[in-house]
Design a protein around this nucleic acid. Sequence first.
DNA 1: ATTTTATTTGCAAATCATTCTCATTTACTT
DNA 2: AAGTAAATGAGAATGATTTGCAAATAAAAT
Lengths: 129, 129
Amino acid sequence: MEAAKQFRKRNAILACLQGTTSHPSAEMVYEMLQKEHPDISLATVYRNLARFKSQGLVNSVATVHGVERFDAMTHPHVHFICSSCDAVIDLPQMEIPESLSAEAEASSGCRVQDCRLTFTGLCGKCASK
Amino acid sequence: MEAAKQFRKRNAILACLQGTTSHPSAEMVYEMLQKEHPDISLATVYRNLARFKSQGLVNSVATVHGVERFDAMTHPHVHFICSSCDAVIDLPQMEIPESLSAEAEASSGCRVQDCRLTFTGLCGKCASK
DNA sequence: ATTTTATTTGCAAATCATTCTCATTTACTT
DNA sequence: AAGTAAATGAGAATGATTTGCAAATAAAAT
């Protein structure tokens, strides 16, 4: 059984994002793909991340120290950013209350398309140091 | 009655942020100060914004198209970002439920220091076009 | 299968926001 | 007035991201 020849690198980039919960940056994706595709270019990673974003396959969930972090999970969820180690962590147990978006629209006249809830602080590891 | 001579530009930068609800970027602050201080340098704006941030006088509330946006309001509140015109708008009517941070800590073992709730969509103006 | 056409990619240069260096200016202290 | 420390301006440096372009790859047409 062969991997499809089409879009080999593009698919690898998407698979990389889908196979991790670490919310990597473009550079992190590039490094993660080095073994599998030693000849990949960083520009290709950026290009395809931009494409995925415009297709709704991938979201940018945060910008940490000026670096964009990505997530292949399209279902909106809650994140935690560690200010010590810069980890971006899912909080899958938590739900964003449905009512919030409606409340926002009602109180402001805006049309809400997306809602993001992000905590900052110290992750478990860093807190215990 | 005279304005203090001390820190004239620094104070102007802080006053600028405190006198607007538009969540400007460093560059926008720089432009807003052109009349009052035509000789100010962009580096000074960046330097002082960084200082204010580390002093807790100013928060960075969002990064829009790679550009950091600032807010002199330290009381945590809810924001709306228009994906069409890039406005960052306060939703002062809305409260972030107190319980959320506690829930996040309980479910994750993280120590929450800050909580940010941000909606994205079309602002009133852009929605009616 | 071979030619034609369109898409994807690598590389390097360009861009843009932000930070840094360093010489100068400003304000405070004596 | 002279000394000292902090703040500033100007421009160079940095770092992330984007872009231009030519080469490689894949798809379509023959």
